[in-house]
Simulated scan of single mutants.
Amino acid sequence: MSREAVLEVRGLNVDYGIGRDAVRAVRDVDLVLHRGEVLGLAGESGSGKSTLAYAVTRLLPPPGVIAGGSVRYRPAGGGDPVDILTLSPQELRRFRWAELSIVFQGAMNSLNPVLTVHAQLTDVLAAHRPDMSRAARTARAKELLTMVGISVDRLGAYPHQLSGGMRQRVMIAMALALEPEVVIMDEPTTALDVVMQRQILRQLVSLRERLGFAVVFITHDISLLVEFSDRIAIMYGGRIVEEAPAAELYGSALHPYSDGLLHSFPALRGPRRELTGIPGSPPDLAAMPRGCAFSPRCAKSFEPCGVRVPSLVASGEGRSVACFLHAGAP
């Protein structure tokens, strides 16, 4: 994995609505994705994970509004960085899928039910590579299906003729059709059983190692990220509250929220441990608590937590945390 940044998110703010009634769903997010890396993004429902993904790709549905910040993409080969938030509609159309693609949260239901797999895979190629012959597009579609472990005789199938796992793989094949540098996956395995989840994720990691693209993998299931990610960022109340290499976060989470997430699922190996979970509910984004958003649910909360918002600061090499429990948090 290269330490060269391929995607840099700086000071990103996203609102739903405008004016006094606007609700801020993503708050001052800074995030860096390195070339060839798998970056996991975890947090409870409503923490801002999907909103962040749709803001980065400029796919925010109304009334979502990007209120500030930048999202810089650095192309391979050392070209000039591109701020995705400033691209025109025509530039954005050329950029998406070719440089950055996304597998949506409802991936199994994202395929057009009245078109065959062949039509949907080749449509991507026809739109972005108009000079490509029909035969070449079909050959590429067969190559993509083989790449994700589906027999080429399924090219003529309709989505309803495929299992959930196969539809998921077709969506991944479509995302990889133009060999992008970055693939964002928004909870792509949520509706699948655990066996199929592991199969698809292992295949994804294998494809990443072979093709070299970087992945932002979004999920509420931190146990998946511990196994398959290089780094993990934890979101709460629209902010990044901790970021660390996957193994280090699993071994010693610094933020109480991260620790609570880790103790909300059973360990498959080692001694039996009690599941503690996290008391309370995620914050109401329209009425955020004063100070640290997690303080009303935190057993370790003390004086400054209910007064000031902790900044995300470095806490060792490759680690950062937004918590007053750790030295250096202003």
Rank of each mutant, 00 (worst) to 15 (best):
R72P: 00
L162Q: 10
S320G: 09
P256E: 09
L92R: 09
P159I: 12
R272D: 06
P159N: 01
K300A: 04
A247L: 11
M1H: 13
T86I: 05
E242N: 02
A157Q: 11
A177Y: 11
Q197G: 11
D28K: 07
V241K: 00
R140M: 02
P63S: 14
I222H: 09
P283C: 07
S315P: 01
M108Y: 09
P180W: 06
E37F: 11
A136E: 15
T276Q: 06
Q90S: 14
H263C: 04
Q197D: 08
G48T: 14
A67V: 15
A314S: 15
D83Q: 02
D153N: 03
M288Y: 08
A191S: 15
E143W: 13
M235V: 05
V241A: 00
S133A: 11
D123F: 04
L125C: 04
E248N: 02
P283Q: 09
S301Q: 14
A126H: 13
D80E: 15
P283L: 06
L176E: 08
L268D: 08
F95R: 03
L115G: 03
F302C: 01
P113F: 06
V307A: 06
P271M: 08
L285D: 08
L87K: 04
V6N: 01
V14H: 09
A314M: 05
V148D: 05
V114G: 00
G36R: 10
L85C: 10
D131G: 06
E242F: 00
M147W: 10
V38M: 04
R208P: 00
D284P: 00
G78H: 13
G306Y: 07
A214R: 00
P283T: 13
P180H: 11
D123I: 05
L92Y: 13
V23W: 09
L254H: 11
R94T: 09
P180T: 08
P113E: 10
I278T: 13
